[in-house]
Computed example of a mutant assay.
Amino acid sequence: MIKVGIVGGTGYTGVELLRLLASHDEAQVVAITSRGENGRRVDNLFPNLRGYYDLAFSDPDIETLSACDVVFFATPHNVAMRMAPELLAAGCRVIDLSADYRLRDHERWSQWYGEPHASPETLAEAVYGLPEFNRHEVAKARLVACPGCYPTAIQLGFMPLLKAGLVDADHLIASAASAVSGAGRQAKIDNLLPEVSDSFKAYGVSGHRHLPELEQGLGDIAGAPVHMTFVPHMLPMIRGIHATLFARLSEPTTDVQALFEDFYANEPFVDVLPAGQYPQTRTVRGANRCQIAVEVPQGRDTVVVMATEDNLVKGASGQAIQNMNILFGLPETLGLVQLGLLP
């Protein structure tokens, strides 16, 4: 049985880890931390977990966490990078859901996050945890950096095209919309129901923190530098991401439907829809699945890819558990067979 610790158990990704791990046959959560809720029972804060956990929140103590086989960081940025080196030195594996280890260049990280990186010497060891691209490296890792929610959908959408060298990698465009839970559980006026309900807006258009992660990851996929225009939007709902991607085809006669179907034929968590069907956020809600559709409108030279996911599952906690399964040589689908919730 894998002994699991979770740092930052009171946010949306933390409680989603708890929900998913409750049905995992090979993992047991033995420590969950929160300074603000220290001593409070987990099922008191999250009644949906009653009967599944007999745990209380505790302070994030290195000695306690070091006794775990793996520690998930479900925290804002700048937490994991301060604690991970000690946990790694103690022989613990670390899966970070924050942005601390996603960028290989610590100076670039500092430019986007506004502070020096606390453990730049550890960045070279971090493996980017997009299993569909990097599972063989994940299997050998001690430190896994889980992709952001937007980058997961966008990279899965562009990957077959970039791997085949079929699109102009200098002019990729992603217009993507995320549910409000993507902004976290902290109190912010902009996230209140009266502020987001019955409305739709763009944000971060001049530059979003996911952009350097996207260009780094897509560049790795393409094997050459890429350039992207990324426009995120806020959706007035709780869960979900819908990404619409645009690229110029170098070979407009390519059967892109067959390309995507063949590329993802053996991927358990990527579902390529039949031609003419388009993904919806509601069909992946609660599931560790990305649904993808591809079109070439009017048979011209622009390919349009649509990708949906639950930002808290395939975009965060579910993908983190998928990486844990790979790390420990378990079936990749273990604990992650939940179907999407309808209606």
Rank of each mutant, 00 (worst) to 15 (best):
D271S: 12
S197Y: 08
G318E: 14
E86S: 15
R104T: 09
G51M: 07
T244Y: 01
I173M: 11
L245M: 09
A118S: 12
P343R: 08
E16S: 12
N191C: 10
F200E: 03
S110C: 07
N325E: 10
G114I: 11
M228R: 05
G318F: 13
L336Y: 15
I321L: 13
P194C: 11
A224V: 12
N325Q: 10
A183F: 14
E107S: 10
M228G: 04
V127M: 02
G148R: 10
Q277I: 14
A258G: 05
L162R: 01
G240Q: 11
A247P: 09
V294N: 07
R285N: 07
I173E: 14
L341A: 03
V270D: 04
L259V: 06
L235D: 03
N325K: 10
V305R: 07
I326H: 01
E295W: 00
L192F: 12
S178I: 14
L130S: 07
L162V: 02
N44W: 09
I154D: 06
L65E: 02
V256Q: 03
G129P: 02
L327F: 02
F263G: 01
A90N: 12
V256N: 04
G207D: 12
A177R: 09
L123H: 00
R239N: 15
V296D: 04
R300D: 05
F200Y: 15
G204F: 13
F269R: 12
D25N: 14
A224N: 04
S206D: 13
L218V: 03
P274N: 06
L166C: 01
F269C: 12
Q291Y: 06
F263V: 02
E251W: 01
D61S: 14
I292R: 01
L97H: 04
A124G: 08
V94M: 14
N325A: 11
L87V: 08
H77P: 04
A293N: 05
S181E: 08
F133I: 09
A243M: 11
F57W: 05
L327R: 05
E213G: 00
S199M: 03
T152N: 08
E215Y: 01
T244K: 15
M324I: 11
Q322G: 01
E26G: 07
A202I: 13
G165C: 02
R82Q: 14
G148N: 05
Y113C: 01
T229Q: 13
K188S: 08
L97D: 03
Q28G: 10
K163W: 00
